[in-house]
Amino acid sequence: MKKLTIATRKSILAMWQSQHIKDKIKNKHKELEVELIGMKTKGDVILDTPLAKIGGKGLFTKELEESMLRGDSDMAVHSLKDVPVDFPEGLGLVAVCSREDVRDAMISQNYASFDDLPKGARVGTTSLRRKMQLLMMRPDLNIISLRGNVQTRLKKLKDGEFDAIILAMAGANRLNLKDEVKYIVAFEIDHMIPAMGQGALGIEAVLKPEILEKIEFLNDENAVIETTIERDFVASLNGGCQAPIGVSARISGDEILIKAVIGMPDASEFLTDEISIKKSDFKCAGAEFAKKFIKRGGRELLARAEKMASES
């Protein structure tokens, strides 16, 4: 194999992530030519509608997957939190890279902390998970849907349309946003549980041995373990990328602490729990933890959440 082609979204963050992986592959396989192919996905094009209303699952991956299935590209680099738990035949999640900061962050030009936000503050996010947890902490907030790439969102913040916006801390770090905005404040996981896979880059690829052998070195053991638990938890609940589900698995020595929350987008109902397991038991931990939520009506709750999101 002489050339490896990476399909990528054209947003600045997606291009940064794909270039980052391209550089890693080139450093490992100096003889290999690596090319990036930029393209737009449905999630990039339709910006005036909340994600939950236009399909949720795979909005940022479908066009990239079609490119791989046609043979136009060999792999794609995703923010793992945007990757559905199911894949088309012939494709798969073949590598999970080491995680950046997994937390969510409040970005603001005027307020140095979440508690400083005034009553009724306008907070921008398109994530139902973030909306739910923001309202769990501060029912007074005015949560407004905010679509677009990071630069578009920052412009709206700077133009005064929002008092704060919520982004992944990983993206803020990768794009060095501390030089562009006044305040970046990370939420501790006890206050806002991240999305499955947040902070990790996931490599989806055509399942051919000659491709897999070139990129398997990108796997990070701890990231694989943590995100396997998180993705299995969501899969067991039949939840998608946009569902109001927060789940975090964190390795500490030989133990893994797992926290999760699910509920309605308006925080009128929610379920939360946490457990600690041995690291060696990770393979079935996500599905087993999900059973605790299922017994408490978790699937039905998420079905009602999906209905609420599609009607709002």
Rank of each mutant, 00 (worst) to 15 (best):
K2Y: 15
K3G: 04
L4P: 08
R9K: 06
K10Y: 12
S11W: 10
L13A: 00
A14E: 03
A14W: 03
M15I: 03
Q17I: 02
K22C: 05
D23T: 13
D23N: 11
N27R: 08
K28A: 05
H29E: 04
H29W: 15
K30A: 12
L32G: 00
V34Y: 08
K40M: 11
K40I: 07
K40Q: 08
T41A: 05
D48Q: 09
D48V: 15
T49D: 10
T49A: 13
T49I: 10
A52H: 07
L59G: 08
T61C: 00
H78V: 01
S79T: 00
L80C: 00
V83N: 00
V85C: 09
F87Q: 15
F87W: 01
L91N: 06
G92M: 01
L93A: 08
V94T: 05
E100W: 13
E100S: 09
D101Q: 14
D104Y: 12
A105K: 06
M106C: 03
S108T: 07
Q109H: 09
A112R: 13
F114Y: 02
F114K: 01
D115R: 09
D115T: 09
K119V: 04
G120Y: 07
A121D: 09
A121I: 15
R122P: 02
R122L: 08
V123D: 13
G124Q: 02
G124Y: 03
T125I: 14
T125A: 00
T126I: 14
K131T: 01
Q133T: 00
L135G: 02
M137Q: 01
R138T: 00
N142A: 13
S145K: 15
R147Q: 13
T152K: 10
R153G: 08
L154D: 09
L157I: 10
K158V: 07
I165E: 03
L167G: 07
A170R: 07
R174L: 15
E180I: 02
V181E: 08
I184R: 14
F187N: 00
E188R: 08
I189R: 05
I193G: 02
P194G: 11
A195Q: 08
M196D: 10
I203A: 05
E204T: 04
A205F: 07
A205N: 04
I211G: 06
L212H: 04
E213K: 02
E213M: 04
K214V: 11
N219W: 06
D220F: 09
A223F: 12
E226I: 10
I229M: 01
E230N: 00
E230A: 03
R231M: 07
S236T: 14
S236Q: 13
G239H: 06
G239V: 02
C241W: 04
A249V: 06
G253L: 12
E255K: 13
K259H: 07
A260N: 12
V261R: 12
L271R: 09
L271W: 14
T272I: 11
D273V: 08
I275T: 04
I277V: 12
K278P: 15
K283G: 10
K283N: 15
G286W: 06
A290W: 11
F293I: 07
I294R: 12
K295N: 07
R296M: 05
G297W: 02
G297I: 09
E300P: 00
A303Y: 05
A303N: 06
R304A: 03
R304S: 04
S310A: 10
E311Q: 12
